[in-house]
Design a protein around this nucleic acid. Structure first.
Lengths: 133, 133
DNA sequence: CAGTATCCGACGTGATACTG
DNA sequence: CAGTATCACGTCGGATACTG
């Protein structure tokens, strides 16, 4: 059979779309920077240069150990930070932005600037919409 | 008692952080544009001007009616698109970007360009990391 | 100090069916 | 044509406890 039901066609489109979204650079980057903690880690490191694990915990109030570790690991894997272990007692681990990480900082700041310049327009639209309902 | 346990202090920080994140313009904007469908709707409308609901479904393969409706409603609420209903048989609803929506398009394209220019560096870092493990 | 391990509840997403 | 309503599932993030 070369004919497909509507459901089958939609299912096929769905799979094709899923595959596309997974490799689409824009979506992958958005997933990266919109991660709940990544931009906060980037901002902390951008301002301070090098920070220890415990420094980062202090700089980012509210982050749990689990999420901070997980975030740092994925950022290391993506080449955004370097992780330097110093064998000592007590143990010491330093994190620093790579060049790629610093390049990404520029983009994040661009987004931040647009947000701060335009969020009021979104809020106004939202207020109007909610009032009209 | 003015003294707090570590757990109490952390819980307080947590709530303060939650409150901060909710109002932080950058996080709010990132949540908006990193929505799975928003950037796709913006791209579709940016290229075509005005589109009907069914056109959008066709332009964005894999979107369900539920998610498309939900996305369009939130975008209308945020002032990114206008929704124009034409009373007729069959019913007709047109969607178009607002000026704010077109401004946002510029930012999304900036992100897209950065992504396309730099995704290879991330992939390379990832490949190296995974190979070393 | 810098993590790791496990459990669990909330939320986002999609499938399916129905409507003005 | 353009939606709405309901259900089910998977993932993410947090709380808690333990370790080299």
């Amino acid at each position: 059979m070369t004919t497909l039901t509507a459901a089958q066609r939609r299912a096929r489109e769905q799979r094709a779309h899923e595959a596309f979204v997974k490799v689409c650079p824009t979506n992958r980057l958005l997933a990266l920077i919109s991660d709940k903690w990544v931009s906060l880690v980037v901002s902390a490191l951008a301002g301070r240069g090098t920070l220890r694990y415990s420094d980062l915990r202090r700089e980012i109030p509210g982050v749990s150990e689990k999420m901070l570790t997980q975030t740092l690991r994925s950022m290391e894997r993506d080449g955004l930070v370097t992780r330097t272990v110093t064998a000592a007692v007590p143990p010491r681990v330093d994190y620093e932005l790579t060049e790629l990480g610093r390049d990404l900082t520029g983009l994040i700041f661009t987004v931040r600037d647009w947000a701060e310049a335009n969020i009021a327009r979104i809020d106004a639209a939202r207020a109007g919409y909610d009032a009209a309902s």
